[in-house]
Design a protein around this nucleic acid. Structure first.
Lengths: 234, 234
DNA sequence: AAATGTGAAGTTGTTCACAGCT
DNA sequence: AGCTGTGAACAACTTCACATTT
């Protein structure tokens, strides 16, 4: 058996009508031409600033903040200039002001509703993970093929897949965390997209096909570990 | 209160003696000058090739494989040339041979022992997650501050923190998955490093300090979601 | 004809060096 | 003096164009 470009017989790799696959690095920002990596680091900076606020620190230099975030000072300054000028030369940055600027730009100052699909081991863990709500996201509902199998009492309502579209519309959800088994991932993703979801955080180790206007971010735990294992060998 | 470069009073941000913090992108490959991103994609290719093997496919073109992996064909070919020449012009690549080459290079053909520290929600989920063992990693032990609180019967032995060094040495473990609370992360990381761990997959949302020879890969779930939320706004 | 392999061009992201403010 | 802001140099990565092999 031989596989070449046009082939569509492999489960999960079919070319879906109307859906195009976009390599991570080519995804357009949509809003402006700020580098993807800068955006990612802004979240990092914000987190550090929040720690500073908690500790009652009012001013911070690019040197100190960069060190806290694990980047070089020049990079921090360059990153910030994509958004404007916020520092005072000779002094540094005002912690609260800078934090506000970043969270305004990241748009996560308001609570964003999110749904989670696939309440297996990983899904359950993510549901109980406090990290999300702390950063302004609320998982408003979870879905599972067999909702009855989820016996633990969780704070989040667990629905069957048939309720997916309805809940997405009612709650005006735009983001979904996908932790279903690989085989099901593309099918579920298609449903999500049809129902109006425009951002998917995908934990299934498959390449999802999606139209241009839908953003898919992949988290592949096995690859992270494999990658680590490569770099520790010398 | 004001924070500038030399300051060491912030919890978690202290400059630790002998430990230096290395930005992700500057980490040396250690072995050769193959781009980091190429290494990452090799894992992706390997996964696709394994699917092809399962489906009994013997030959694949760079076009088809690239599509399956979500990258451009030229990029796939360029990536492969870092390791040598494996294709036959006009024909494509031999699936099994290519898979073997990649897994040899990634060094994950043999089962690597891994430990997990912090058996909270996330830790428990990762323990039951099949994805790791499927890719050649075996979680040989887990550790928790209070091992007795873990009541679920898991296949992996749960130890207290006092047994950390002993088990690492006995089992010759070099990689650790860290899912303890943020406040504890640096302290535990120090212990790990002292006991001989050289690779840490860190789920705590803090920047860990580590000596040059230790590789830290960070997975920050909240940032992934925040990042997604930025890009879906338009 | 079909596909790989690769130098060169292009693109993106990072760091430097230093001008400019407070 | 101390620290930001930024054009320019640099480095890393990606894509192109096409020579080459089967």
């Amino acid at each position: 058996m031989r596989l070449s470009s046009g082939w569509t017989g492999m489960p999960g790799l079919e070319k879906l009508p109307g859906l195009r696959q976009i390599p991570d690095d080519l995804k357009k920002n949509g809003r402006s031409d700020i580098p993807r990596k800068t955006i990612y680091r802004m979240s990092l900076y914000l987190r550090c600033l929040q720690r500073l606020i908690q500790n009652g620190i009012q001013t911070v230099s690019s040197d100190a903040l960069a060190q806290a975030a694990g980047v070089k000072p020049t990079q921090l300054r360059k990153d910030l200039t994509y958004f404007g000028q916020f520092g005072r030369r000779g002094l540094g940055y005002e912690v609260e002001q800078l934090a506000k600027m970043i969270s305004d730009h990241l748009g996560s100052s308001s609570l964003q509703p999110v749904i989670l699909i696939g309440v297996g081991n990983l899904g359950r863990a993510l549901l109980t993970y406090r990290g999300f709500e702390k950063e302004g996201f609320e998982i408003v509902a979870a879905f599972d093929e067999r909702p009855e199998r989820v016996r633990d009492e969780l704070k989040v309502p667990i629905y069957g897949m048939k309720d997916l579209s309805r809940v997405i519309e009612e709650e005006e959800v735009r983001m979904a965390i996908l932790c279903v088994p690989s085989q099901a991932a593309q099918l579920v993703a298609n449903n999500l997209i049809e129902s109006g979801i425009t951002g998917i955080l995908n934990f299934a180790p498959v390449v999802l096909m999606a139209p241009d206007e839908v953003i898919v971010n992949n988290v592949n735990l096995a690859i992270e570990l494999e990658n680590l294992s490569y770099f520790i060998q010398d």
